[in-house]
């Protein structure tokens, strides 16, 4: 097999399975991502981070086949080649508190084999400017806010203009303005696979969403398709409906219900939340 990266190949996984001490974390996942921003959506423990760790070459699947950027990550040389063209943001990126953002991203660039000091310095400045950290690039990380630290880690993932970005909850800790900035950053990347448990992030960032429940893919489509799953099963009323499988009060004070609507119910347009909640409760048939 050639060790040349295919920039457009993205992630192709078939039957990916991973167990931890007998517990199945990921169960026969098929995933194909080539271009655009694809969101993995699911509750805590659904297996999102495990799938991302496999897609980032950090974890090997117990079974199934995986191809990244057209290469096989189970072979050492090909894995190194993939890693040269891959950016990874883990869910809990530990940082060195005594480093500055510049130092940290520079170190990541060194490990990513950007050997020319001048070009490396330019690249580090570029990514830090892209995540809006130019003003604090020489301030100690321990003095930065949580959102800024998240952006430092994001900048580290983006060093070298990777062809494949694997991001575990990238918008965590970001304010609305930074989320908007993230949106434009991600739209410029060739292929992005990201996880979230926030449907508003999916709506804002992703052109495609894959819902994982208990380690299995239960939905794969556009955010609009996910919302449409709940069409005809969402209604609003001025009081709680005990027969609805899920009811909650909206900011306007009305009660919103999910489930089998009673006759003459005031059906409303479904949202992404509605479609996801229906899937998550296993009531969608």
């Amino acid at each position: 097999m050639s060790t040349r990266v295919d920039r457009t190949a993205g992630v192709v996984g078939t039957g990916l399975t991973k167990r931890y001490r007998g517990t199945v974390a990921v169960d026969g996942v098929d995933l194909e991502v080539s271009g655009g921003v694809v969101g993995l959506l699911g509750p805590n423990g659904a297996g999102k981070s495990t799938v991302l760790r496999m897609a980032a070459t950090v974890l090997a699947p117990d079974s199934g086949s995986l191809s990244l950027l057209g290469l096989d990550p189970s072979h050492h040389d090909e894995r190194v080649e993939i890693r040269r063209r891959l950016g990874y943001l883990p869910q809990d990126p530990g940082l060195y508190p005594g480093f500055t953002p510049f130092d940290l991203v520079d170190y990541v660039a060194v490990l990513k084999e950007l050997t020319d000091p001048g070009r490396r310095r330019d690249e580090v400045r570029r990514v830090l400017e892209e995540v809006d950290l130019a003003d604090v690039m020489h301030k100690k990380i321990r003095k930065l806010s949580g959102g800024m630290r998240q952006r430092v880690a994001l900048a580290a993932a983006m060093v070298g203009r990777p062809d494949l970005l694997v991001l575990d909850e990238p918008a965590s800790g970001l304010d609305p303005e930074q989320r908007l900035r993230l949106r434009s950053l991600l739209s410029a990347a060739p292929t992005v696979l990201m996880s979230t448990h926030d449907t508003s992030e999916v709506a804002a960032l992703c052109h495609r969403v894959v819902v994982l429940l208990a380690g299995m893919v239960v939905f794969d489509g556009t955010p609009g398709d996910l919302a449409e799953l709940a069409r005809g099963r969402v209604w609003e009323d001025d009081r709680q409906d005990p027969d609805a499988f899920r009811s909650w009060q909206t900011a306007e004070g009305a009660w919103r219900h999910l489930g089998e609507p009673p006759p003459a119910a005031g059906l409303v347009d479904p949202t992404l939340d509605d479609g996801y909640l229906l899937l998550a409760r296993g009531t969608h048939r």
């Binding site: 950090v58 040269r84 990874y88 530990g94 940082l95 060195y96 990541v108 490990l111 990513k112 580290a156």
Partner: peptide, 17 residues
């Protein structure tokens, strides 16, 4: 290494670091 997770997908692998 507190940043091991962040560096986990680096071409300079864990043993190398």
């Amino acid at each position: 290494d507190p940043a091991a997770d962040l560096l986990a997908a680096s071409p300079t692998g864990r043993l190398h670091r």
